[in-house]
Simulated assay, not measured.
Amino acid sequence: MSSLEVVIEDARGCARLFRLGRDVEAGLAMVAVVEAAQPFVELMPGDVQSSWGGLLGLMFNDQQAQNWLSLADYLEYELVELLTAGQAV
């Protein structure tokens, strides 16, 4: 399993934690996911990097609003799509 695949699997695991209502544990896991994803994003084209910034903003807003289901969706679907699309470029 590549490093990127590990980040993707961790993002999905974090999303599961949010869906189970384990928001404190998931919040800590999310910090690790974002930190692990950042180096991959920095190597991607500028449009992916700007999408990353927008996605982080949306995720932060959901975290502030305690909208765990929406945050889980961003982690499981949008983040994974961004990382895999950025690798394909």
Rank of each mutant, 00 (worst) to 15 (best):
M1L: 12
E5R: 12
L71Q: 10
V80C: 05
A37C: 11
M1Q: 10
A65W: 03
V6D: 08
A11Y: 06
V41F: 02
T84Y: 00
E78L: 01
S2Y: 00
L58W: 05
A72G: 06
L17W: 06
N67E: 14
L58N: 09
G21N: 10
Q38L: 12
A85M: 05
R12E: 04
V33H: 04
V89P: 00
E5P: 05
V80M: 01
V7K: 04
A29E: 12
S2F: 03
Y77P: 00
L55C: 06
T84Q: 09
E42A: 15
Q49N: 07
A15L: 04
V34M: 13
A65V: 04
L17Q: 14
L56K: 12
V48R: 14
D10C: 04
A88M: 00
D23P: 06
G57C: 05
L20N: 07
S2H: 06
L75M: 09
Y74Q: 10
P45S: 07
L71V: 03
V6H: 08
S70L: 05
L83V: 00
V41H: 02
A85K: 05
D62R: 13
V24S: 15
V6R: 12
Q66F: 11
V89T: 01
D47R: 14
Q87G: 10
V89Y: 01
L55S: 07
A88S: 04
G53I: 06
P45E: 09
A11W: 02
M30C: 14
D23R: 15
Q87N: 08
S51D: 11
V31P: 09
M1Y: 11
E81A: 01
A29P: 05
